[in-house]
């Protein structure tokens, strides 16, 4: 007897595929890769790559918000910028801010991290307390600082009064205001650096200290010089760059507490950019400031990237 055989094995589906597009795993993967990347790639183009190009181009035009036409004016915006006293004041203030906040918060963070790591009790307590300012909304805390720094009723001046000193008007004194902002900046940043240093210290194997002691490094300073500092070197550079890049972006405290005043004494780069762009709507001029700002931030990130690559090579 000759029974007709079934055309296909019952265990396999008759349809070759639900997708007629299916031409093997690799092509499918290719299509899928594009399909899954498409939303992100589109948004990246729209919100990051496009805008960064736009800022660059804008800075060479005379365009302002609301204008229907524009002209290429080459470097005119930059010429105006570099001839502007406010800009130089703003750049100088930003540099001073960076030059104070970076070493201040890095050294304090390092010192506190080493003290915390040197003992057993209270480790997580201290870590949490020092980290608290990083977490808390900076705007809210700026307002709190404003209350504390109030010339008549603020905590700081009341304490000084107890000591017999008449405290100044911290936020209205042109000679002081920038340093006060630096202080708040350090207060906010120390915890962040501390945590990075703590994680760095944790990776130093304890047998290295034992070896150092065997080799005659008996004092704490010797051990620091011989083991801690060299091994903490990479993370220190890392922290330095991150802190600098954050310090360059100082804005919140300035906007809330001083608005750049008094008399431009606390004017910083980002705040100048903000006022030009969104208060006076001098769009292309503000774009030129943005390019200067971007130049400094990218310079720093470039150093960091170079460094991160080097670190990868080491491991």
């Amino acid at each position: 007897m000759n029974l007709p055989l079934p055309e296909t094995s019952p265990s396999l589906p008759r349809r070759t595929s639900r997708w007629r597009l299916y031409r093997g795993a690799e092509q499918y993967e290719r299509l899928l890769g594009w399909f899954l990347s498409l939303p992100a790639a589109g948004l990246m183009l729209l919100f990051l790559i496009g805008p960064i190009v736009a800022v660059l181009l804008l800075s060479f035009t005379d365009w302002q918000l609301g204008m229907s036409a524009f002209e290429w004016i080459g470097l005119d915006n930059y010429a105006e910028l570099f001839g502007d006293h406010t800009f130089w004041q703003s750049l100088k203030n930003t540099m001073i801010y960076v030059a104070i906040v970076v070493p201040g918060s890095v050294l304090l963070g390092l010192g506190a991290a080493m003290l915390i790591e040197a003992g057993k009790q209270g480790k997580s307590f201290y870590r949490a307390v020092y980290f608290l300012p990083v977490m808390a909304t900076l705007i809210a805390m700026s307002i709190v600082w404003q209350v504390i720094l109030h010339p008549d009723f603020g905590l700081l001046n009341l304490i000084l009064k107890e000591l017999g000193i008449t405290g100044p008007n911290w936020l209205q004194d042109g000679d002081l205001v920038l340093y006060v902002l630096c202080g708040i900046g350090i207060w906010q940043q120390v915890g962040f650096n501390l945590v990075l240093f703590l994680s760095g210290l944790m990776t130093i194997p304890s047998h290295l200290y034992e070896a150092a002691e065997m080799d005659g490094a008996s004092s704490a300073w010797d051990r620091f010089r011989l083991v801690t500092w060299p091994l903490l070197g990479p993370i220190t550079l890392f922290v330095l760059v991150i802190t600098s890049s954050k310090a360059f972006q100082v804005f919140d405290t300035v906007q809330v507490l001083t608005k750049g005043g008094p008399n431009k004494a606390s004017e910083v780069l980002l705040y100048t950019m903000y006022t030009e762009a969104f208060e006076y709507f001098r769009t292309s001029y503000a774009a030129a400031i943005t390019v200067v700002f971007l130049f400094f931030v990218l310079l720093l990130t470039l150093i960091k990237t170079r460094f991160v690559e080097r670190k990868v090579h080491y491991s």
Partner: peptide, 16 residues
């Protein structure tokens, strides 16, 4: 071929 049927156009899960 699996059981005499070409599977080159089948996705992994359809090959049983």
């Amino acid at each position: 071929n699996i059981s005499g049927q070409p599977v080159d156009q089948l996705r992994p899960k359809d090959r049983n």
